[in-house]
């Protein structure tokens, strides 16, 4: 545990708060020596409070200073290149970017819906009991291992370029967007199925015991008792994985689709800048941040509900 004096010394790194911290800590020592324990403790607390201010405000101030220096260094290089005002305020550029971003949005919305269902199927496959189902469990495990282990980018390449070339009927004729949806669904289906599986396994065995004791078959038990409870439990952490999916839609650009990334590149080339990448980043944040906040609220409400009945 840091003493008041040591904390104040560190706090001096940010003098506006560090100096008061040090002053209080010196007073505290003096009062302690004079036997005024009560006041000494009081001063010590003030020293500690100021030390915390030093950390919080100091870190913020230094971070901003560093970022500003970064932006302005090298003859404003970073500011010019990544935040060129001309491009950032170009309405036509934003219009083109929004057109492209709409494609990314479509991809992740549809992929999310597919993943919600597909991942549950895979999770149930992995949990089917009995020796007769071992091949199914094995298949599901292989699928999960492979698609969690291969980077999304490579999956998109293999699915988007490979499948198209194989000239397989129907599957060989999808559009690039559809390939992207399939690739992302395969990858994130693997992650999310593990979340579902953890959820299913977290439903206490006594629920299964009660359901089976009533005469419900294994599949009826899963369908009406276990899975509904599992899904309710894991929806929040599961939605967390979706934030990754939303960002990974940027990868569909490698298939040549004129999504927000490729349109950004085009703008960058037209304007000799990289500011369009910042614009694309802003668009992604406009989606992921509200989603995250909503998700936090969902988790909070769910926890409140769970604790209410106790």
């Amino acid at each position: 545990m840091l003493t008041y004096r040591k904390a104040a010394t560190i706090a001096l790194l940010f003098p506006p708060a560090g100096v008061p911290a040090m002053v209080h800590s010196i007073r505290a020592s003096r009062l302690a020596r004079e036997g005024e324990i009560e006041s000494a403790r009081h001063e010590g607390e003030r020293a500690r409070d100021w030390s915390w201010y030093a950390v919080g405000i100091g870190l913020s101030v230094y971070s901003v200073a560093f970022l500003t220096w970064l932006l302005l260094a090298n003859n404003h290089a970073v500011a010019r290149v990544f935040f060129g005002w001309a491009t950032l305020t170009d309405g036509a550029a934003w219009k083109s970017m929004l057109k492209g971003f709409w494609i990314n949005v479509q991809v992740f919305v549809i992929a999310e819906i597919i993943v919600l269902v597909w991942a549950l199927v895979v999770a149930v496959m992995r949990l089917l009991p009995g020796p007769a189902c071992r091949p199914i469990r094995f298949l599901a495990t292989v699928y999960v291992d492979v698609f969690r282990g291969v980077p999304s980018l490579l999956v998109i390449y293999i699915v988007g370029l490979g499948l198209a070339q194989a000239n397989v009927p129907i599957v060989g004729d999808f559009s690039d967007i559809q390939y992207a949806i399939i690739a992302l669904s395969l990858t994130y289906g693997a992650y999310v199925s593990e979340v579902y599986r953890a959820g299913i396994e977290s439903v206490h065995w006594s629920q299964t015991a009660a359901a089976r004791s009533l005469g419900l078959t294994y599949s009826q038990t899963m369908r009406h008792v276990v899975v509904p409870q599992a899904v309710r439990r894991v929806i929040p952490p599961l939605l967390n994985d979706f934030i990754g999916l939303q960002k990974d839609t940027a990868l569909i650009s490698v298939l040549g689709v004129l999504d927000v990334v490729n349109r950004a590149r085009f703008i960058n080339n037209s304007r000799g800048t990289l500011a369009a990448y910042s614009m694309a980043a802003i668009l992604f944040l406009l989606v992921t941040i509200p989603f995250t906040r909503w998700l936090d609220g969902l988790i909070r409400r769910q926890q409140a509900k769970t604790l209410a009945g106790r």
């Binding site: 494609i103 479509q106 919305v109 549809i110 919600l116 949806i181």
Partner: peptide, 19 residues
């Protein structure tokens, strides 16, 4: 959900990325 998926996939089939 199944209907949504079907609609979604069909929609993207129609919206191709041709310029």
């Amino acid at each position: 959900i199944a209907a949504l998926i079907a609609v979604g996939l069909l929609a993207t089939a129609c919206g191709d990325d041709d310029n």
